[in-house]
Design a protein around this nucleic acid. Structure first.
Length: 108
DNA sequence: TATTTGACCAAGA
DNA sequence: ATCTTGGCCAAAT
């Protein structure tokens, strides 16, 4: 069978992340056996896979929120909704950062 | 095919 | 603490 695009791998892996946990672009890339941290973010940039991909569970390695409040308007309705969802999953966010980041980072 | 871009990362100033 | 630089990889144009 033809190899799927990296985007699909990423999306698949991201779906694999247990709820209430988060992952970093780096971890995802490394988990895929690559170092395309950027490609990962690039893939979700527009989230071509829609709600199947919980992009809100993806954060930067510093525990900061990427995209949602980093480069995109933190006051956007969409963004705030995602943050709220994170909170609802047990992930507390402090401004644009994650609280107890090390505790919620994905480790399978 | 080549160039640009991008929700990154780590290190240095 | 913030800003800059270099590096990495893949997708989009």
């Amino acid at each position: 069978m033809p190899p799927k695009s990296f985007n699909e791998k990423i999306y698949k892996l991201l779906k694999k992340v247990p709820k209430g946990k988060v992952t970093t672009y780096k971890l995802l890339a490394e988990a895929l056996g690559t170092k395309a941290y950027r490609a990962v973010g690039q893939a979700m940039r527009c989230n071509p896979y829609a709600p199947e991909v919980p992009c809100h569970r993806c954060v930067s390695s510093d525990g900061k929120i990427g995209g949602f409040s980093g480069s995109i308007d933190p006051n956007s309705k969409e963004v705030r909704r995602k943050m709220k969802m994170l909170k609802g999953e047990g992930i507390k966010t402090k401004g644009n950062k994650i609280v107890d980041f090390e505790k919620v980072v994905w480790m399978d």
